[in-house]
Design a protein around this nucleic acid. Structure first.
Lengths: 292, 292
DNA sequence: CGTTTGTCTTTTATCGACAATAGACAGATT
DNA sequence: AATCTGTCTATTGTCGATAAAAGACAAACG
């Protein structure tokens, strides 16, 4: 196999979802734009829709013959891109498994274990190296620096610098900047989750990322925004891994976010700094607790 | 060719340099440690030394037969690693050549132009992407964001945050920390260059990197230290590219460094902040001038 | 007994090949 | 006239293969 056809399979599934709602398919270019893929892949999807008897397709005439059923979808395991698979597999190893700092990382072994080629593993490790968890010895192996206390402290130190600056910049955004609307939307979701915290506390992780990314974007600095990737991936896997007291922790974080949002609205630098620091401090503590 | 033997050639050349000074070669492991290579490569070097009649080698008996001459060395073009070649080639294109922001970057074209495989180009681009100058469209090309005014401003904004914090941390290093000695050594080189500025002003670039890296290291934060790579590469190529008023500019920077070093020694936070800001401000201005 | 050497195995860096995907262009359709 | 479709080409993502380099281990040496 030269290239996985995960783009095709994933887009096919999303196309089926579209078909559940509407029985009308737009033109090829439009469908491509909707699904975020090229026309080549759109046509591959249409061809398959015809093959499985969901569609008659001739030039512009596209007639949906029936509603899609579960069996029409590709299994979700097949729709993940290779890099997602590698990332998950790798993170599980270094977060969950007994991964000692200083351990060697072997490209070939990793590749065999996941069942993929070495090229993909190498490219992943290179991309991943910017997260500061691994380091390359040229012409030799990678070294795992580990998800240690030091790592967490260094990460949060930079995070606090960047987020304070971003929050200050946020307050200076013009009244009509779309970020304020997005902030309203985010605040509403906070209230919604808090109102049903027992069932919905797991939705916090995604919301957290959405909120902080919005704040960071206000810095209009690519390095600050890019750095948020590091924070996001660490917290993402941290939430998956450490579930102790998740409900209470998330509830508290939601409240802190609300205070933080209110401070942003006030545009008062002092208040913003206070609310921001307060929240970042508890985020840091949560992270540190999960390490030791 | 599967792998370049640049490690061998480069180490061979360095070994010849050793032979110019001493006529005695140590054991294989020791030589390997000196040259920073494995024993396998050491033995390849010894074999070649024998082939070209520089050495008789049998087990522990290594007898140097003559001094190496210029013709014994591998040409320098052959000792650069592939990634260095790609980097130079790429930087020339995007800094010197008419590289408009928004331009597409084509892996295949780049590879053909440099005369190497696509894998190496891809890996380079992935590594390079953390410098914020290019961006990937998945399943499609890379986009050049360009060495623009915005780029320089964003870069220097973060640089200033990081360096101020590092400088403050530097002042808190214990009296006996090796960084203070290194600072003395660096200061001495400053005086030496200033004393012969007409001839030596080109040495500033390297010294600049050495000094600022030392300061950044005091932060003991991998993200801050790693970020210095971005600064270093930008200034490195910037110095190569923009030579107008280089002598005066470097002389001024050297003076600013000396003031900055004195401030660090004073350990007075206010003085440090002042000297640091002053220097970073002119560094930023120099960079900006070269852009428009 | 601690190094050093000889030999062998494993891993990395790089290439070329090929399927998946993107993208270009001319002719067809409304 | 604008958009869509058919067809074709170019580029990306991934693999396996291979030379260079690293590294393991036992026998030899001092």
């Amino acid at each position: 196999m030269a290239k996985q056809n995960t783009v095709f399979k994933d887009a096919f599934n999303r196309c089926l979802k579209l078909l559940e709602q509407t029985a009308n398919l737009p033109s090829e270019p439009e469908l491509g734009a909707t699904l975020g893929i090229s026309r080549t892949t759109v046509r591959a999807i249409l061809t398959r829709l015809e093959e499985v008897g969901l569609l008659t397709w001739e030039k512009r005439r596209k007639i949906v013959l029936r509603k899609p059923v579960a069996a029409d979808y590709f299994p979700t395991e097949e729709t993940d891109s290779l890099s997602e698979i590698i990332e998950r597999s790798f993170m599980r190893r270094i977060l969950a498994g007994g991964a000692e700092p200083g351990m060697q990382i072997n490209e070939l072994e990793l590749a065999r274990e996941i069942g993929i080629g070495t090229t993909s593993v190498r490219e992943f490790l290179i991309r991943f190296s910017r997260f500061g968890l691994i380091e390359k010895r040229p012409n030799s192996h990678w070294v795992l620096k580990g998800f240690t206390r030091d790592f967490a402290l260094e990460l949060t130190e930079v995070r606090e610098m960047f987020e304070l600056r971003s929050a200050t910049a946020f307050a200076r955004l013009p009244e009509d900047h779309p970020a304020w609307q997005e902030l309203d939307a985010i605040e509403a979701v906070h209230h919604a989750i808090l109102a049903d915290i027992e069932n919905r506390y797991r939705d916090f992780s995604e919301l957290d990322e959405r909120f902080h990314l919005l704040v960071h974007r206000a810095s209009k600095n690519r390095f600050i925004v890019d750095f948020y990737d590091v924070i996001a991936i660490v917290f993402h896997y941290h939430y998956q891994w450490n579930k102790t007291n998740a409900r209470e922790r998330n509830a508290r974080a939601l409240e802190e976010h609300l205070a933080y949002i209110a401070a942003l609205r006030s545009r008062d630098p002092i208040e913003i700094e206070l609310a921001c620091r307060q929240h970042l401090k508890s985020a840091r503590e949560t992270l540190l607790q999960s390490i030791n």
